[in-house]
Amino acid sequence: TFELKGKVGKVVKIAEDHYLVEVEGDKWIAYSDEKLSLGDRVMVVDVDGLKLKVKRIP
């Protein structure tokens, strides 16, 4: 999972307290300090167990 840091993915689902992002064909639970929208491109900035911390990228 640490090899996911720096990888780019996209938001595929928005849940009440987390996001579902697809990175390299796999779906992961993710969270972010900013509000994300469906389809946003994101970069993995940290890995916390099986959850990814992501940030939006242009």
Rank of each mutant, 00 (worst) to 15 (best):
T1H: 15
T1W: 15
T1K: 15
T1I: 15
T1D: 15
F2E: 15
F2N: 15
E3P: 15
E3T: 00
E3N: 02
L4Y: 01
L4Q: 05
L4H: 02
L4W: 02
K5N: 14
K5Y: 15
K5G: 04
K5S: 07
G6I: 00
G6R: 00
G6Q: 01
G6V: 00
G6C: 03
K7I: 02
K7N: 03
K7P: 00
K7L: 04
K7Y: 04
V8W: 04
V8I: 12
V8M: 08
V8G: 04
V8P: 10
V8N: 06
G9S: 02
G9R: 00
G9H: 00
G9D: 00
G9P: 00
K10G: 07
K10I: 11
K10R: 12
K10H: 12
K10W: 09
K10Y: 11
V11P: 02
V11G: 00
V11S: 02
V11A: 06
V11H: 00
V11Q: 00
V11L: 07
V12S: 06
V12K: 06
V12I: 09
K13N: 10
K13G: 06
K13F: 10
K13P: 02
K13Y: 06
I14G: 06
I14K: 11
I14V: 10
I14A: 12
I14T: 13
A15M: 07
A15H: 06
E16T: 12
E16M: 10
D17P: 14
D17A: 12
D17E: 06
H18N: 10
H18D: 08
H18V: 12
H18L: 08
H18W: 12
H18P: 03
Y19E: 05
Y19T: 13
Y19P: 05
Y19Q: 07
L20R: 04
L20S: 06
L20V: 08
L20A: 06
L20C: 06
L20H: 09
L20Q: 06
L20E: 04
V21R: 01
V21C: 05
V21E: 00
E22I: 05
E22V: 06
E22P: 01
E22R: 05
E22A: 07
E22H: 08
V23K: 00
V23M: 03
V23C: 04
V23D: 01
E24S: 03
E24P: 01
E24L: 03
E24R: 01
E24D: 04
G25N: 08
G25A: 07
G25L: 09
G25D: 09
G25T: 07
G25S: 10
G25R: 05
G25K: 06
D26V: 05
D26Q: 12
D26I: 05
D26R: 02
D26G: 15
K27R: 11
K27D: 14
W28Y: 14
W28M: 03
I29R: 12
I29G: 06
I29P: 13
I29H: 13
I29F: 10
A30Y: 00
A30F: 01
A30C: 05
A30G: 11
A30L: 01
A30H: 00
Y31V: 11
Y31A: 14
S32P: 11
S32K: 14
S32V: 13
S32T: 07
S32F: 04
S32C: 05
D33P: 09
D33A: 06
D33K: 05
D33G: 06
D33Q: 07
D33T: 09
D33I: 12
D33N: 13
D33W: 07
E34S: 07
E34H: 08
K35L: 10
K35I: 11
K35M: 10
K35W: 08
K35N: 09
L36W: 02
L36S: 03
L36V: 11
L36E: 02
L36Y: 09
S37I: 14
S37Y: 09
S37G: 08
S37R: 08
S37Q: 12
S37C: 11
S37N: 12
L38E: 08
L38P: 07
L38V: 09
G39T: 07
G39P: 06
G39C: 09
G39A: 12
G39K: 11
D40R: 03
D40A: 09
D40C: 05
D40T: 07
D40L: 06
R41L: 07
V42W: 01
V42D: 00
V42K: 00
V42I: 13
V42N: 01
V42E: 00
V42F: 06
V42T: 07
M43N: 04
M43K: 04
V44Q: 00
V44W: 01
V44R: 00
V44I: 07
V44F: 13
V44M: 02
V45R: 03
V45L: 04
V45Q: 05
D46I: 02
D46R: 02
D46F: 02
D46E: 05
V47P: 03
V47A: 04
V47R: 02
D48R: 04
D48E: 09
D48M: 07
D48W: 13
G49N: 12
G49K: 08
G49V: 11
G49R: 04
G49F: 10
L50F: 13
L50R: 06
L50E: 05
L50K: 06
L50Q: 04
K51P: 02
K51I: 10
K51Y: 13
K51F: 10
K51L: 14
L52R: 00
L52C: 03
L52P: 03
L52H: 01
L52I: 12
K53P: 01
K53Y: 14
K53M: 13
K53A: 04
K53F: 15
K53H: 13
K53W: 09
V54M: 03
V54T: 04
V54W: 01
V54Q: 00
V54I: 05
K55R: 10
K55G: 13
K55P: 00
K55I: 14
K55A: 14
K55Y: 07
R56F: 14
R56G: 11
R56M: 12
R56K: 13
R56Q: 08
R56W: 14
R56A: 09
I57P: 09
I57F: 06
I57S: 10
I57N: 04
I57D: 14
I57R: 04
P58K: 04
P58I: 04
P58T: 12
P58G: 13
P58V: 03
P58M: 05
P58W: 04
